[in-house]
Write a protein that binds this DNA or RNA. Structure first.
Lengths: 219, 219
DNA sequence: ATTTTGTCTTTGATTAATCAAATACTCGTT
DNA sequence: AACGAGTATTTGATTAATCAAAGACAAAAT
């Protein structure tokens, strides 16, 4: 039975493994989890001893099959909870992330099963992130286009929002750039660093780093 | 921000204060919480330092106003969660207690508010236990009659089940002695220690200590 | 080849929660 | 008044998670 701290470490490693068995630097984890580097080293050693990951000193860490399975289960739980909070409890899009952060460590599989059934076995959460299946196949990283890389003038649909922070989600909501919305890039200027998009509700302008947080797919 | 351990200690003290400002012995708490007496003494001292309770050495503990408020909030959360799990997630009566035990420490007030609204502000949970109001008026202890003390032959209604352990609830379900059911004591024998009741579904026989766990009210 | 820089690991402490075992207290009996 | 039984408290350790600061290393710069 991993503690919630261990679950959070595993989740962070999974999310920062750009693909398959990528090695994640301990510094990256320290940053992501908001603890000092020394803490990461200590935790990582004890988790390696438990068989949840491999640690090559001064290189980084890689999840074992077991660690990956636990991490995927936590992510699945998180995203199902978010979906449930929005669809059933009618909570606000912007606040569910932190709620799910706490609940994902307390909710039993029994309850999760009921939630999954009531939601009709959804495959993506309100932010457009895929919900890993219980049999734990990979969670695919957004490898398609974003508003920062897509073709200009092409009609697109917003697929996924890669930043769950309340202020960013607030902006997304205000502009209407939510998953499912139709959008088209009108202008992208690498000198000024801005992207101007057109959507049903009007126009939205955002910076390139912000545009890179919005996955899109050509229609 | 009390830890979940502190919340559990407060809840246990509240539940074992037979009324108002009763003093609870540390030994009682050790028993209830499943830890050694020494642990209780240590925890109790630190909680007293935080102002959650008063501790008279070798006497017992008493909740302060603040400790009582926290304890009532936890109990309220617990019972609303149980009700939600049964009514909305259609979970089994018998398994919701332990689920709520974990969830009560992770669920935010924001989510609780939504749950309360969706349930229509209920005043008692599936076991018939009263749900303390948010303004924290007392939770009344079952001071009425039980199947062990009520008048024989009088028509009654089951009010509340005072033991949430799965085996006992299993028995309650099997016999139909659930809150709301109509029942009548046919025979109570203090020599053999048994109580025979009649209800719509037939007859149920149980021991006196068990009968004392079922609150009833005359119709 | 040496130095510098930036990242990682170690070391020594701290806090919360817990136990086992030793000690101390209080009450009811003799 | 002294004793013994039953509780309660102390004491000394342990585990998980964390920090600050010191030390070690590797890769880039000179």
């Amino acid at each position: 039975m991993p503690t919630s701290t261990v679950e959070n470490y595993l989740k962070a490693i999974l999310v920062h493994s750009s693909d398959k068995d990528a090695v994640v630097a301990t510094g990256t984890l320290a940053e992501a989890l908001g603890v000092t580097p020394g803490t990461i080293t200590t935790m990582v050693k004890s988790m390696a001893a438990r068989g949840l990951l491999e640690h090559q000193p001064r290189e980084g860490v890689r999840l074992t099959a077991e660690g990956r399975a636990v991490a995927l289960a936590v992510v699945r739980k998180h995203r199902l909870i978010e979906t449930f909070l929005v669809q059933v409890l009618k909570m606000d899009w912007k606040e569910v992330h932190e709620e799910a952060e706490a609940l994902e460590h307390a909710l039993s599989d029994r309850v999760l099963l009921r939630i999954d059934a009531i939601l009709g076995h959804p495959t993506s959460d309100p932010h457009g992130d895929p919900i890993p299946s219980p049999k734990a196949p990979a969670l695919d990283r957004g490898k398609g286009a974003t508003l920062a890389t897509c073709e200009v003038q092409r009609p697109l649909r917003v697929e996924r929002i890669l930043d769950q922070s309340p202020p960013f989600l607030e902006f997304i909501q205000r502009t209407g750039l939510k998953p499912g919305a139709r959008v088209r890039v009108r202008e992208r200027d690498h000198t000024s660093g801005i992207v101007r998009c057109e959507l049903k509700e009007g126009e939205a302008t955002l910076g390139l780093p912000e545009a890179a947080k919005i996955d899109v797919r050509p229609l």
